[in-house]
C-alpha cells in the first residue's frame, strides 16, 4: 500500500490554482518533491496534513482520508515546516519534550524520546540552552527532531536545507537519507533544487504550476544513457580525439569539455582507449554518462 496516494487532487483559490488534478503515489524510502517556488509543494503538504481542505479530489495518507481523518493522520505524521518556528526562550530539550506530549506521548516517554531524537540529529551539548542562541544549522536540527520525536510513520520535510551552508546542507541530507533507510521512516522532502535531491532520494515527484510533471524512480531519471563520457587534458586534444573517433567509425560529439561517445558494445571502450593512447593525450576520466535531474526541466 502506498504511504501517500492522491487522486485528481485540486486546490483552487479565487485567483490562483495551487494544485491541478494531481494524481500521484508515494511509497517507502525517500521521495523528493521538486518544483519552483509557487509550484504547489507547500499547499500539497498542508492538504496532506489535513490543515486545508482540497477543492476537489482526494488524498489518502497512511490509510486515512485527509479530509475525514485529519486527526489520525496528524498523529502518525511528522512535519518540519520551511520557516523558523522555534520560541527563543525555551531549550531544545523542553521544546521537544513538550511537542512529544502534544503528539500524545506520556510525559516519561516524551522525555526519553526527546533525548534520543536530539542525539540522532546531532544536538548533544547545546540542547539545554535556550534556542534563541542557536545557529541556523542547529535550529534546523531541532525542527527535524520535533518532527521525529513521536516516532512518526511518515515525515514531511519542507525545504529542510533552507539557509544552510554547503557543509550543513550535506549533513542535513545525510540525516534525511538515514531517516529513510536506517530509521525506516518514509520521507517526503521538498526542494526547489533538483540537484540536492539527486543523492538522497529513491523517487522524485516533479511539480510545475500545480501539475504533475514527472513521477519516477531516481534510477529512471538519472539512469545510464548508453553514452560514454570521455575527458582529456586540453580542448585541442578533445577535438583531435573526436575526429579520430569519427574516423574509426564511432559516433562521437563534443559536449563542453567532454566527448560523448555512443556505446555500441564492448569494442567502444577499446576504441576510445586506443585512440587516446595513439594521440598521446592525457586521459582525465572515462565514465558512463548519466542523465542529470536538471535535464528533466529542459525536456
Amino acid at each position: 500500500m502506498p504511504v501517500i496516494a492522491t487522486a485528481s487532487l485540486s486546490k483552487r483559490y479565487p485567483r490562483v490554482t495551487a494544485l491541478d488534478e494531481l494524481t500521484v503515489e508515494v511509497g517507502s524510502g525517500v521521495t523528493g518533491l521538486v518544483g519552483a517556488n509557487g509550484a504547489g509543494k507547500s499547499t500539497l503538504l498542508k492538504i496532506l496534513l489535513g490543515l486545508i481542505a482540497p477543492t476537489a479530489g482526494s488524498a489518502i495518507v497512511l490509510g486515512h482520508d485527509v479530509v475525514t481523518g485529519g486527526e489520525a493522520v496528524r498523529a502518525l505524521v511528522g512535519y518540519m515546516p520551511e520557516h523558523d518556528c522555534l520560541p527563543p526562550d525555551v531549550s531544545a530539550t523542553e521544546f521537544a519534550v513538550h511537542l512529544a506530549q502534544m503528539s500524545g506521548l506520556p510525559a516519561t516517554a516524551a522525555r526519553e524520546r526527546a533525548a534520543d531524537v536530539l542525539r540522532h540529529v546531532g544536538l548533544d551539548e547545546a540542547r539545554y540552552r535556550p534556542m534563541g542562541g542557536y545557529s541556523t544549522g542547529m535550529k534546523q536540527r531541532v525542527k527535524l527532531a520535533q518532527a521525529l520525536v513521536h516516532d512518526p510513520k511518515l515525515v514531511l520535510l519542507d525545504e529542510p536545507t533552507n539557509g544552510l551552508d554547503p557543509a550543513g546542507r550535506d549533513e542535513m541530507l545525510t540525516l534525511v537519507r538515514r531517516i529513510g533507510t536506517e530509521f525506516g521512516i518514509p520521507v517526503l522532502i521538498t526542494s526547489h533544487l533538483l540537484g540536492e535531491l539527486e543523492h538522497v532520494c529513491d523517487h522524485i515527484v516533479i511539480l510545475d504550476g500545480g501539475r504533475l510533471l514527472r513521477s519516477e524512480s531516481k534510477a529512471a531519471l538519472t539512469g545510464e544513457t548508453g553514452v560514454l563520457a570521455v575527458e582529456v587534458r586540453d580542448l585541442s586534444g578533445r577535438d583531435r580525439l573526436a575526429a579520430a573517433l569519427e574516423r574509426a567509425g564511432a559516433r562521437a560529439r563534443p559536449d563542453g569539455p567532454l566527448i560523448l561517445v555512443e556505446i555500441t558494445g564492448e569494442e567502444t571502450f577499446d576504441l576510445v582507449r586506443d585512440a587516446v593512447a595513439d594521440l598521446g593525450l592525457g586521459l582525465v576520466r572515462i565514465e558512463p554518462h548519466r542523465h542529470r535531474l536538471e535535464e528533466v526541466f529542459s525536456v
Binding site: 518556528c85 527563543p88 511537542l99 500524545g104
Partner: peptide
C-alpha cells in the same frame, strides 16, 4: 515565533 504551526500539525 510561528510555533503555532507545529501545534496545528499535531492531533
Amino acid at each position: 515565533y510561528r510555533s503555532i504551526v507545529l501545534y496545528l500539525a499535531r492531533p
